[in-house]
């Protein structure tokens, strides 16, 4: 399996695993998969008490929010996306925070982690982001349901990579997880990973459709075994998207995988994270459960579209002391 990264470091500041080896995957270890447990009530309790246990204030909050911005996969995944819409989004990704605010914070320019679009918008996005180092991520494999013919799903990945996507967000076949066919899930994920080549692959589990946290844990593990660079909660199209309990289960799986193999897999919660305060809670969850190394865009991303706007308002509040208004910040 390919463990090397062929991208140049300059262009790929935000790409996963540029400073350490990519997760090569491993043989499917069904004993491990089946032994994994996830006690829902206990996980919910931990998730519910976390916001009360961790609090980040003042300059720390400002710094954390800036960090959060660098981890956002600024996303548009709508049927009415156009070239113009995607260009505007890319412009926002290049300059997510008003220069005046950055100046007040004495911060150099920052960008979002990536821009995430459908296949047809890849070229537009690549073009708009040229020279910025911001990678383009494309959702793929019959997103969001993942029920198109398998060979077409593989071909879609290949097309997207060819079009310039450096990150591919694939969706897994939920039915494999729901029926406990872990071998099938493993094989599918592995095929997707191969199709991605040098592009990094994020496995979307669609956790809202997996039925139980135990299944979330098992699917996370199987995807990592099959070589996922990132595991991601949701498409944003399920009725339940990223939640703290689901995140806890997935990052614990990441931790176990790292303990066992030495490879760090990234995590991307997506959908439903729209407030700056939520972002801070997520970051503290990552910090406490996985450690500071995961607080970088190569190992953590937010899949979000409206989060950035709230963070901008909070930053301006920190700078000016006055609560901000949405129209004061440029649209994404």
């Amino acid at each position: 399996m390919d463990t090397q990264s062929s991208e140049s470091p300059v262009r790929t500041a935000h790409l996963p695993q540029v400073t350490e080896p990519r997760n090569p995957g491993m043989e499917l270890d069904l004993d491990w998969v089946r032994a994994i447990q996830a006690n829902t009530s206990a996980i919910e309790r931990r998730a519910a008490t976390l916001p009360g246990r961790r609090s980040v204030k003042k300059e720390y909050q400002a710094a954390w929010l800036l960090k959060a911005i660098t981890m956002i996969d600024l996303t548009t995944l709508s049927g009415d996306d156009t070239v113009g819409r995607v260009r505007r989004l890319c412009a926002k990704a290049r300059q997510p925070v008003a220069p005046s605010v950055l100046q007040a914070l004495d911060m150099p320019p920052i960008t979002t982690g990536a821009v995430c679009v459908y296949h047809d918008m890849i070229e537009t996005a690549v073009d708009a982001l040229k020279g910025t180092g911001i990678p383009v991520a494309a959702v793929s494999t019959g997103f969001p349901a993942g029920l198109s013919p398998f060979h077409l799903r593989v071909a879609e990945i290949e097309e997207s990579v060819k079009a310039g996507a450096e990150e591919i967000d694939i969706v897994i076949s939920r039915r494999h997880a729901l029926s406990g066919d872990w071998q099938a899930l493993y094989d599918e994920m592995k095929a997707f990973r191969v199709a991605c080549g040098d592009a990094h692959v994020k496995a979307i589990l669609a956790t809202g459709e997996l039925g139980s946290l135990r299944n979330v844990a098992r699917a996370s593990l199987v995807c990592m075994m099959a070589g996922a660079d990132f595991i991601k909660t949701s498409t944003g199209k399920e009725s339940v998207n990223a939640t703290l309990p689901v995140s806890l289960v997935m990052i614990r799986a990441i931790r176990d995988y790292y303990d066992r193999t030495g490879y760090r897999v990234g995590y991307k919660p997506a959908g439903g994270i729209s407030k700056a305060k939520d972002a801070l809670v997520y970051l503290s969850l990552i910090k406490d459960e996985l450690g500071d190394r995961w607080l970088e865009p190569d190992l953590f991303r937010f899949g979000a579209s409206s989060l950035l706007g709230d963070i901008e308002r909070q930053l301006e509040h920190y700078v000016t002391g006055a609560y901000s208004a949405g129209y004061r910040h440029s649209m994404g």
Binding site: E59, Y60, A62, A63, K67, L105, D106, K287
Partner: peptide
């Protein structure tokens, strides 16, 4: 500074 915290990601 904010810049330093941005790197260290400490709680404060």
């Amino acid at each position: 500074t904010v810049k330093e915290i941005f790197e260290t990601m400490e709680y404060g």
